[in-house]
Design a protein around this nucleic acid. Structure first.
Lengths: 244, 244
DNA sequence: CGCCGGTTTGACATACTTCAAGAGAAGTGG
DNA sequence: CCACTTCTCTTGAAGTATGTCAAACCGGCG
């Protein structure tokens, strides 16, 4: 369920200020955005957008986790993107969205009406530039995932997935203990992300626990014990980046 | 092997004029591009760019077919994109490319030095806009393909692939007989595109021939005989778009 | 003609799925 | 605070789509 918050936080204090679409904006440009924006909140499990919905607004994910997914008629589903804070939802230029966006945790969006936002793109090149950049980054990620989906084994998929979590979590400056990781997804969701069944995910995770590569404190929190082994298991670059 | 052609064709007579990055350009903007561009030709099988190469130029594919691919150390490879005329190669803002680009047929590129091109993006919004649009389109395609790679059966993959060929070939206004199709890839390449082995591709194609869904005239030319059955076999929207 | 890349076909192997049952957590309501 | 339901995860046994290995074929091309 949507909750519209009236309170508009200052963009300058926004946690995703330097990574979102607005990253490159000058103070004046930021002012324009600030007048346009609204916050919306969603509870874990809430659908944010359904495939085929008219896209009246676009948004930056401020806090929380969401998934992009596609579902076939018989129920098979494939997650095609994992949205973390600073990621962008929606596409200027298209009025319809082509997949489902679902809140995985409680989350809040920074929304802009699509039309005015599109106008802004035309007039402020900093946003357009950043948008191209973000789209191309996502494209790289999507292509990396195509390799994973098409060619990697179950074990490699899991290892790659964990490795990605590690990197994205570090990147976003969440400076908790370097090794403590939050797993926002259920195993069924992981399965949908990796093109596997939940049973296979469970079995592979158990195996990696038993082998001492990862260790779970509870269902949602774990840490990587053996990084080299994890890298090894991804199937990527056999040497990989030396330890963090 | 690269051949640099000196002759600069008029942009206004270019076959991909209205679909490539330059689609939206005004005559004056086109002039600027015209001064910047060079043509390069490649023979079938030539590598155009290797993963890790420095990206000194970006380009539009004018004629021919190329593939984007990723290869793992042990040789497994996954094609992550199929480039047809008007598609764009390279990404402004990044100096390195993250996958291999290979010419499948003889082809010609319309190249721009990356630096001047990036400058142009800053100054002419029409190019930036078109670039966002194209990047987001590619992203949609990539995500559709993720569903295919992660969840579809071999048969659904093949059917979807053929269906895509049909649509792209029609779209690009090549007005030969509506049903006659050119298959630019070998079965091994198709396999790499679909996350299968060549044997599976061969078997599924044979099956579809036997069932009278498609028909081959020679190794590279075929036609779809039974469109409804083809749609059915893709696993998408069971009704699908009524016949063309 | 004989080679060579691409394709076909068969027999066999296996990684992953499917089906099924049970055990923990975790939320819900009295 | 304790039953009761509902998720989520675990583990096993059996099935299957697809991969692997191997041989033969086919059409071009030098």
């Amino acid at each position: 369920m949507t909750v519209d918050l009236l309170s508009r936080q200052k963009c300058s204090e926004c946690p995703i200020r330097h990574r979102a679409v607005c990253a490159r904006c000058s103070p004046e440009e930021l002012d324009q955005l600030e007048r346009l924006k609204t916050y919306k909140s969603f509870k874990a499990g809430d659908p944010i957008l359904w495939r085929g919905d008219t896209l009246t607004y676009v948004a930056s994910l401020v806090e929380g986790v969401a998934t992009l997914g596609k579902t076939m008629e018989d129920g098979r589903t494939q997650m095609v993107g994992l949205l973390l804070p600073s990621d962008f939802i929606g596409r200027p230029g298209r009025s319809e969205i082509d997949f489902d966006v679902v809140a995985v945790t409680d989350l809040t969006l920074c929304c802009f009406q699509r039309k005015p936002f599109e106008a802004l793109i035309g007039s402020t090149p900093h946003i357009a530039q950043r948008l191209v950049e973000m789209a191309l980054d996502e494209l790289d990620v999507a292509r990396e995932w195509m390799l994973l989906l098409g060619r990697k084994t179950a074990r490699e998929k899991i290892a790659t997935f964990i490795n990605m979590l590690v990197q994205r979590q570090h990147l976003s400056g969440a400076e908790n203990d370097k090794r403590a990781l939050v797993l926002p997804l259920t195993q069924e969701q992981i399965a949908n992300y990796l093109g596997l069944t939940l049973e296979t995910v469970s079995r592979q995770l158990s195996a990696m626990k038993k082998e001492g590569i990862v260790q779970f404190s509870d269902r949602r929190h774990f840490e990587v014990v053996d990084f080299p082994a994890l890298h090894m298991a991804t199937g990527d670059d056999s040497d990989g980046g030396m330890l963090v």
